[in-house]
Amino acid sequence: MMHERIALMKRIQEVEFAATDLQLYLDTHPQDQRALMQFNQYAAELMMLKQQYELAYGPLLNFGFSQSQYPWRWIETPWPWEEEF
């Protein structure tokens, strides 16, 4: 179970990195339609991965950015930044 959680978190980080990199590129190349399509694909995948993670392991973000199931799950597992990879 822990291996799947770590693998999913790693994939989230990879996709988030790619989306951020493309976002920075698009800031200087706003007419690059191919890059925009790639950005949108990564953004959609990232949303799906985060939803999948939160359903299985609890919220990734605090302060109202992530919903929680009942009971309150934020304190059940290590926080995302406490993960050991």
Rank of each mutant, 00 (worst) to 15 (best):
A44S: 15
E16N: 14
I12T: 01
A19R: 06
Q31C: 08
R73D: 13
P80K: 02
L8F: 08
T28P: 11
R73H: 07
N40C: 03
M48A: 15
F39E: 09
P80A: 01
D32P: 04
E54G: 05
P80D: 07
W81P: 05
D21L: 09
V15R: 05
Y57C: 05
L8K: 08
M9P: 08
Q51E: 02
H29I: 11
K10F: 05
W81K: 00
Q51G: 13
T28E: 14
L60I: 07
I12D: 01
E16Y: 01
R11P: 01
T28C: 08
P80V: 03
E45N: 14
L60D: 10
P30V: 01
S68V: 10
N40L: 13
T28K: 12
A19L: 03
E4K: 07
L8R: 02
N40E: 14
Q67F: 05
M48H: 05
P71K: 02
G64K: 10
G64A: 12
D21T: 13
A44V: 02
K50S: 12
E82Y: 02
S66N: 04
L61H: 09
L46T: 14
Q33G: 00
L24F: 12
N62M: 13
Q38L: 06
F85K: 06
Q23G: 13
P59H: 04
P80H: 07
H3C: 12
M2Y: 07
I75T: 03
Y42P: 12
D21Q: 14
R73L: 08
Q23C: 06
F65H: 12
Q69F: 08
M1G: 02
P80Q: 09
Q38W: 09
Q38T: 06
Q23S: 08
H29V: 05
Q38C: 00
Q51S: 10
M1S: 12
R5N: 11
W72I: 02
H3R: 15
E82H: 01
M2D: 13
Q69P: 11
Q33M: 04
S66E: 03
F65G: 07
H3K: 15
L22G: 05
N40W: 02
F17W: 09
F39M: 01
Y57R: 03
P59Y: 10
H29S: 03
Q51P: 07
I6H: 03
R73Q: 11
M47H: 03
Q52G: 01
I75E: 13
S66Y: 00
G64D: 04
F63C: 06
F65Y: 06
E76T: 13
Y42K: 06
G58M: 07
L36V: 01
M9S: 14
L24W: 02
A56I: 06
F65M: 04
F39K: 11
A7Y: 10
S66D: 05
Q31W: 03
E14Y: 01
Q13N: 15
W81R: 07
G64E: 07
L36W: 09
E45K: 08
Q41F: 09
A43K: 15
A35E: 05
F65S: 11
L55V: 05
L49Y: 09
R73K: 10
S66T: 00
H3Y: 08
L55N: 08
M1H: 10
